[in-house]
Structures are given as structure tokens and as C-alpha cells.
Simulated scan of single mutants.
Amino acid sequence: MATGLATLSLDAAASGLFGLIGTGLGRIAGFFERKQTFNQEQARWSHELKLHELTMQANAQETEAELALIAQSGSWKGLEASILAEAAIGEGSRWVVNTLRLVRPVLTLLLWLITAFIFAQTGDGSVIDAAVFAATAATLWWFGDRAPKPPARPSAE
């Protein structure tokens, strides 16, 4: 009976020991599982952050493009208003019409003379650049799309 009790005690102790070892191994495995899950979540968060940054960048570029389109549209509307204002002058004295038609060329010539004077008098590159930019912009604005239009061909009917 003593050997049976000793065997029973050893079996109980061994099963308890194996139970503790199994629990310990389960805890260790659980730690590595949680670590792997955390790494996966961290990778997912990083990916979501990159997607969010790319979305923000795309939205910023879209907004910038819309603003450029609005600015360009405003520029064309200004040119159209300028052309319509000139066309609205209508009939008048020949002398007045000719004088009005000389305003742009005279102003352009004066602007380029002033630009040449600034170029000759100053050594500041930014002032020269600004004057040349203004003269070029004014010239293109005043004469850019003012060439005579070819006569319309009669349609062949």
C-alpha cells in the first residue's frame, strides 16, 4: 500500500508539475501571440497613417488646381470685359476713335522707355526684373489677342 500511495503521490506531483509547465508554456505562447498581434496592429496603423497623408496631399493638390483654375478664369473674364468695353465705344468722331486707338501703343512705348531707363539707372536685379515683368505683362495684355481676325468665309450652301 505504501508503494501505491507513493506512486499515487508521485503521479499527483508529476501531473501538477506538468500542469504548471503547461500553464507556463501557454503563458509564454500567449505573450508571443500578443506581441505578434501588436506588431500587426502597428503595421496596420502605419499603413492607415500613410493612406491618410496621401489623401491629404491629394486634397491639397486638388484645392491648388481649383484655385489656379479660378484665377485663370478670372483673368480671362478680365480680358473679355476689356474687349467688350472697347467694343462698346461705338461710333464717334474719327479723331476721338483714332486717339483712343493710340492710347495703348503710346502707353506701351512709354512703359518700355521707363523700363529701359530703370535698367540703365539701377543695378538692382529685382527692380529690373519687376519692371521687365510689368512691361511684358502689359504688352501681352494689351496686344496679346488683338490681332485682326481673318474674314469669315461664306458658307457653301
Rank of each mutant, 00 (worst) to 15 (best):
2 A>T: 08
2 A>F: 12
3 T>M: 12
6 A>D: 06
6 A>F: 07
8 L>T: 15
12 A>G: 12
12 A>F: 10
13 A>P: 07
13 A>Q: 07
13 A>R: 15
14 A>I: 09
14 A>P: 02
16 G>Q: 08
16 G>S: 08
17 L>K: 09
18 F>H: 11
20 L>R: 12
22 G>M: 00
24 G>D: 00
26 G>K: 05
28 I>Q: 06
31 F>A: 11
32 F>L: 03
32 F>N: 03
34 R>I: 04
34 R>E: 03
35 K>C: 05
35 K>A: 14
35 K>F: 08
37 T>G: 02
38 F>L: 08
38 F>A: 14
42 Q>G: 04
44 R>L: 06
44 R>H: 03
44 R>P: 00
45 W>K: 13
45 W>G: 00
45 W>T: 02
46 S>M: 09
46 S>C: 02
47 H>M: 08
47 H>Q: 12
50 K>S: 09
53 E>D: 06
55 T>K: 13
61 Q>H: 11
61 Q>S: 09
63 T>M: 05
63 T>G: 04
66 E>A: 11
67 L>G: 02
67 L>K: 14
67 L>Q: 06
67 L>T: 05
68 A>T: 07
68 A>D: 14
69 L>E: 06
71 A>Q: 07
72 Q>P: 00
72 Q>H: 11
73 S>G: 10
75 S>T: 05
77 K>T: 05
80 E>M: 04
80 E>F: 09
82 S>H: 11
84 L>A: 10
84 L>I: 00
85 A>E: 08
86 E>T: 09
92 G>L: 08
93 S>Q: 09
95 W>G: 01
95 W>R: 07
97 V>T: 10
98 N>Y: 14
98 N>L: 14
100 L>I: 03
101 R>N: 15
101 R>Q: 12
101 R>T: 01
101 R>A: 13
102 L>M: 15
104 R>G: 09
105 P>E: 01
108 T>M: 11
109 L>T: 06
109 L>I: 10
109 L>G: 05
110 L>V: 07
110 L>F: 03
111 L>F: 02
111 L>C: 08
112 W>K: 05
114 I>A: 13
116 A>G: 08
117 F>C: 12
118 I>H: 02
119 F>E: 01
121 Q>V: 11
122 T>H: 02
123 G>L: 04
124 D>M: 07
124 D>Q: 09
124 D>H: 02
125 G>P: 01
125 G>C: 01
125 G>Q: 08
126 S>P: 00
127 V>P: 03
127 V>L: 14
128 I>K: 13
128 I>M: 10
129 D>T: 13
133 F>W: 03
135 A>M: 01
137 A>D: 00
137 A>V: 06
139 T>C: 05
144 G>F: 07
148 P>C: 04
149 K>P: 03
151 P>E: 00
151 P>L: 01
152 A>L: 10
153 R>M: 10
154 P>W: 05
155 S>F: 12
155 S>M: 06
